[in-house]
């Protein structure tokens, strides 16, 4: 086990969503779930992050932003799609401006289902993301 599994720093991006999943992600930081216990930090800056956590779907205007954020993250990095919207477009999939899940624009490593996804499953998704991170690091090294 390397340091990656003990110190995953997260960048949270919210695409086209109802903000339900967004709030569940923030709930993970609160005393009830307290993800900092696992060394998880919400960084707000792609250059510091290991895990890109996306809620909401991709639309016309945020494609390049998601791609840019992903590109600016240094390797190794993983993407976790949280909620139905991020996985497939969810209930907005048919909307005129929505392209679909975020795997349309960046490679996704972990899909967390739910509408909204529960904090427990979000944390579980991040833990699986950490495993993916470890694998990628092994490949890089």
């Amino acid at each position: 086990m390397s340091f990656f599994s003990r110190s995953p720093w997260i960048l949270h991006y919210d695409g086209s969503s109802c903000n339900g999943c967004d709030i569940e992600v923030l709930a993970c930081l609160t005393p009830l779930y307290d993800v900092e216990r696992f060394g998880i930090v919400n960084t707000g800056n792609p250059k510091h992050a290991d895990i890109l956590l996306v809620t909401g779907s991709v639309n016309e205007r945020n494609i390049d932003i998601i791609q840019n954020l992903y590109r600016q993250m240094p390797d190794p990095k993983v993407v976790v799609a949280v909620g139905a919207c991020a996985c497939s477009g969810g209930i907005f999939a048919r909307a005129y401006n929505v392209q679909g899940g975020i795997d349309k624009v960046v490679p996704v490593d972990v899909y967390v289902p739910g509408c909204a996804a529960r904090p427990e499953s979000i944390i579980d998704g991040v833990v699986q993301g950490i495993a993916a991170l470890e694998q990628k690091r092994a490949k890089v090294a």
Binding site: N45, P46, K47, D64, I65, I66, N68, Q72
Partner: peptide
């Protein structure tokens, strides 16, 4: 040129 600008290119 690859500086952070809130995701903007």
């Amino acid at each position: 040129n690859d500086f952070y600008a809130s995701g903007r290119t």
